[in-house]
């Protein structure tokens, strides 16, 4: 990708996907079916001791759109991510990607099927270089077989190809200068970027980002947001967790609100933010914290929203 392409991409106004659910505006209720869902989940529950961390009757993620999963701390967002990606097992429920059930499918197979996640606490591999982190993301590598590994001629060509793809992505994520550095030497924000770029090496269909913006300094926030928007324009589906309603408003096509393990509201960002249940459950408890004190973030968002006008 050339530089000028990138410029146009990053400054492009996000084009919102609309008409994602079945029915009219009055049908934007928790569990509403989608016209073209990529993930369909029903009756997912998970309890820790006596605590019902997740209790989702029905949830569908619309394809080729950006869906934000929001809700106060402890709402069960990360737990739901773990359940959907095979990192944790629910007590009950069934869920499917592209119609294929993921129930009981181990995490690595879920990733191979095209549903790739990142973690709330970044898992950049610090003792490996940035480039090695990236190459680890590529799928179907011949050289990852024990016996093939011993014969470099069997995987050299593929290694060159994925290295080139990794360089492209690193260029896009402005990490290319750091490619030979150990990931441990990166800043928190750069690690988030690396983890996202590494996930893209898998060529996912659905990217699930758990708080991609948390702890990222405001200078990098905008670039992260624009990368998320780019994913959609490249045909991917994004599900991301975020606390900050303003950011969500800016990039999400659809918003799912969780509180105390349940989906309490769903809809397009504007509708959801007017929803009384959301204001009570989410903004009510988190108001001062999320929107008031984090002035850096608020300022960035103001700039972003200004860009939009």
């Amino acid at each position: 990708m050339s530089n000028s392409d990138m410029q146009t991409k990053t400054t492009a106004k996000p084009v919102k996907a609309t008409d994602l659910h079945v029915g009219g505006p009055e049908d934007m209720l928790p569990g509403v079916p989608k016209r073209d869902p990529i993930v369909v989940a029903t009756n997912i529950t998970r309890t820790f001791g006596g605590l019902k961390a997740v209790d989702v009757e029905s949830l569908q993620i619309p394809r080729n759109a950006i869906t934000a999963l929001i809700g106060p701390n402890g709402a069960g967002k990360t737990t739901l991510f773990n359940l959907l990606t095979g990192f944790d097992k629910p007590d009950t429920g069934d869920w499917a990607l592209n119609g294929k059930s993921l129930k009981g499918v181990p995490a690595f197979k879920v990733a191979r099927m095209g549903q790739v996640r990142t973690f709330q606490l970044t898992k950049a591999l610090g003792m490996m270089t940035v480039m090695d982190n990236m190459l680890l993301g590529a799928q179907n590598q011949t050289g990852e077989g024990f016996f093939q590994a011993i014969i470099p001629s069997m995987w050299r060509k593929q290694e060159d190809d994925i290295t080139e793809r990794a360089l492209d992505l690193l260029e896009r994520f402005k990490l290319v200068k750091l490619k030979d550095d150990y990931a441990a030497s990166l800043s928190g924000g750069q690690r988030k970027l690396l983890e996202m770029a590494r996930a893209l090496m898998c060529r996912p269909e659905l990217v699930m980002l758990d708080e991609p913006m948390a702890g990222v300094n405001p200078a990098l926030t905008q670039s992260l947001l624009s990368h998320i928007i780019d994913l959609k324009s490249e045909g991917m589906t994004v599900l991301f967790v975020e606390h900050d309603m303003q950011m969500v408003k800016h990039i999400a096509d659809w918003v799912v609100v969780m509180a105390e393990g349940r989906v309490v509201a769903e809809g397009d960002p504007k509708t959801v933010m007017r929803n009384q249940a959301v204001i009570d459950a989410y903004l009510g408890s988190n108001h001062g914290k999320d929107l008031g004190t984090d002035t850096d973030t608020v300022n960035t968002m103001k700039e972003l929203l200004d860009d939009q006008r």
Binding site: T85, F87, P106, A107, F108, K109, A111, R112, V116, R117, T118, F119, K123, A124, L125, G126, M127, M128, D132, L136, G137, Q139, E144, R198, A199, M201, C202
Partner: peptide
């Protein structure tokens, strides 16, 4: 070497 450091990260990238 990825597994040595964080096996969940490696699992999330589709490795058994």
């Amino acid at each position: 070497k990825g597994i040595r450091e964080d096996e969940d990260a490696v699992r999330a990238l589709g490795k058994n």
